[in-house]
Simulated assay, not measured.
Amino acid sequence: MGFDKADVEPYGGWQGFLDAHVGNWGDDRMVSDVVLMDKDADGNPTVVGVETEFENGSSTNSFIARPLDPVSYLPSVSKSEGINFGPARMAWLDITWKTVHWNDLKPFEFSFTPIIMWDITKPNCLKTHGIVPLYENTRVPSDEEYEQFLAGNPPWRLGGSWAQIFLQG
């Protein structure tokens, strides 16, 4: 998804990167997944996993939705039996990506996304994501390394983010 500054600088920043990659993710490492919980018409729990088709990444990675067991969260069907809806750019993914760049998140920093209306699962509500950046080096940075982050010269490549979703009914 072009999280790292080195990925977006040739395009004039993160918005230019997004504009230049409307039909793809712009990075062969792109992977993503989300678990959606809801209830069916009878009030029984439903759990759906939405994940990218290729686990090792692809700049044209498609999303596949498939039911998950509501207890174990393991897929109930194979990926080939899931619903493939292409490399759709979903609002939750875009707002995560933008939040990382708006806030220039460094190791151990945290930020909330702007609040959006959630209508994918019930109850419809307001929602925000808590975002943590994921760097390719996962150890605690030394004081010198952290100073490099603060100076805008990160010693490690930003590889993605983790989001926890908060719903307000």
Rank of each mutant, 00 (worst) to 15 (best):
I116D: 01
T121F: 05
P70L: 15
K122V: 03
R29M: 09
D40G: 11
P45Q: 13
G86V: 05
P133L: 05
N61Q: 08
G13W: 09
V100F: 06
T60V: 13
S72E: 10
E109D: 06
L126P: 01
S58H: 08
L74F: 11
S111M: 12
I95G: 01
L105K: 01
W92E: 04
V132P: 02
D42Q: 12
N103K: 13
S80R: 13
H101S: 01
D40L: 10
W118V: 00
W102L: 10
P133V: 04
M30R: 02
L134H: 13
A65T: 06
G13T: 03
L134F: 10
D42H: 06
C125I: 01
F110A: 03
A20D: 04
L36M: 09
P133Q: 05
V132I: 13
T113L: 02
V132R: 09
D38Q: 09
D104V: 07
P114V: 04
T128N: 09
T99M: 13
Y11R: 08
R29I: 00
S78T: 11
V132D: 00
S32H: 09
D69F: 14
F54P: 04
G13H: 03
D104K: 05
G130P: 02
S72W: 14
K122C: 00
T113C: 09
I115V: 14
P67W: 15
V22K: 14
I64C: 02
D38L: 04
N137S: 07
S78F: 05
D40V: 11
V34L: 14
V71W: 08
N61R: 09
G82Y: 02
A88W: 10
P67G: 06
G43N: 07
V22D: 12
S59A: 14
A20L: 10
S59H: 13
E55Q: 10
V100Q: 03
G86K: 14
E136P: 01
L74C: 04
W97Y: 15
T121K: 13
E136D: 13
W14R: 04
F108S: 07
P87I: 03
S32Y: 12
H101D: 06
T96I: 05
E53M: 13
P70E: 13
V71M: 11
D40P: 08
